[in-house]
């Protein structure tokens, strides 16, 4: 979905962002001159090889890291620390084993000092919708990987963010759960009209879930390409990630992105 000229300001905008890490062995340039605008409600995937700075990009947008140069803006305002508009789903669920499922789901609300009665209501509602209604009092270790990642999604959404950052959220799951859950999460985020940014190294996952795919080069990460993903469907709606894999356009996108990624198998 390309932004028509004169449309509303971007939800997330990066202007010439660069980031360098400093260490005793020297400095590492992780990102160089990244400029990117993401419209409200857009679902963007960022792909690149490991170590290309894709996760760093999310840390910048979430405000837990500041850029070395350039600006990161949310709704036109520069980011100065973690914002309540942003929810962040990490690579693993990182549920706290000493909390119950419900207590885990309200962690963000608790940290932000939100109204806990309402947070618990909302968490219960979300968990029930994700099929976890009977597990509210359970401990994380009693749940399967897919269920745990759904709790993590509920924990992210309880605080009501407009923007959801997904950092390879399915990488710890087995491949069946992974496909099923990416369908489910893409559907949930679309229905709630969230702006979503997915970081992954899985090309198929990116094409299946996002309506726009940005390719980052190897370190220092720079934007190599930025292309919309469109599928011709009879009802004009976007197919679910799993169905998208069978769409005729899928292979074309896959091959283009594969070439742009310049995958070299090493060793």
């Amino acid at each position: 979905m390309e932004r028509p000229p004169g449309a509303a300001e971007p939800k997330v905008e990066l202007r010439n962002v660069g980031l360098r890490y400093f260490g005793r062995e020297g400095e590492t340039e992780a990102l160089r001159d990244i400029s990117l605008a993401i419209a409200p409600g857009e679902f963007v995937a960022i792909i690149g090889q490991s170590g290309c700075g894709k996760s760093t990009l999310l840390s910048l947008i979430s405000g837990i890291l500041g850029p070395t140069s350039g600006d990161v803006l949310i709704d036109g305002t520069p980011v100065a620390g973690p914002s309540r508009k942003v929810g962040y789903m990490l690579q693993q669920d990182y549920l706290f084993e000493w909390r119950t499922i419900l207590e885990n789901a309200v962690l963000g609300a608790e940290i932000q000092g939100a109204d806990m009665t309402r947070a618990r209501e909302r968490a219960t509602q979300l968990l029930t919708r994700y099929g976890l209604g009977q597990f509210l009092g359970h401990r994380p270790r009693q749940l399967s990987g897919g269920m745990r990642q759904r709790v993590a999604l509920a924990r992210t959404l309880v605080t009501g963010p407009d923007i959801v950052l997904l950092d390879e959220p399915f990488s710890a799951l087995d491949s069946q759960t992974r496909l099923a859950l990416s369908d489910e999460i893409a559907e949930i985020l679309r229905r709630e009209a969230k702006t979503a940014i997915l970081v992954t190294h899985d090309i198929g996952e990116a094409i299946g879930m996002a309506e726009r795919v940005v390719v980052l080069s190897r370190r220092p990460g720079q934007i190599k390409s930025d292309r919309p993903i469109r599928f011709a469907t009879p009802d004009g709606r976007r197919p679910a990630p799993f169905a998208a894999r069978n769409a005729p356009e899928f292979n074309g996108y896959f091959n283009t992105l594969w070439q742009e990624l310049e995958v070299h198998v090493e060793g």
Binding site: I64, Y88, L90, L107, I111, Q112
Partner: peptide
């Protein structure tokens, strides 16, 4: 990562 998670909520 658990600390990072808490930080993402500010």
């Amino acid at each position: 990562n658990k600390i990072k998670l808490a930080q993402t909520f500010g």
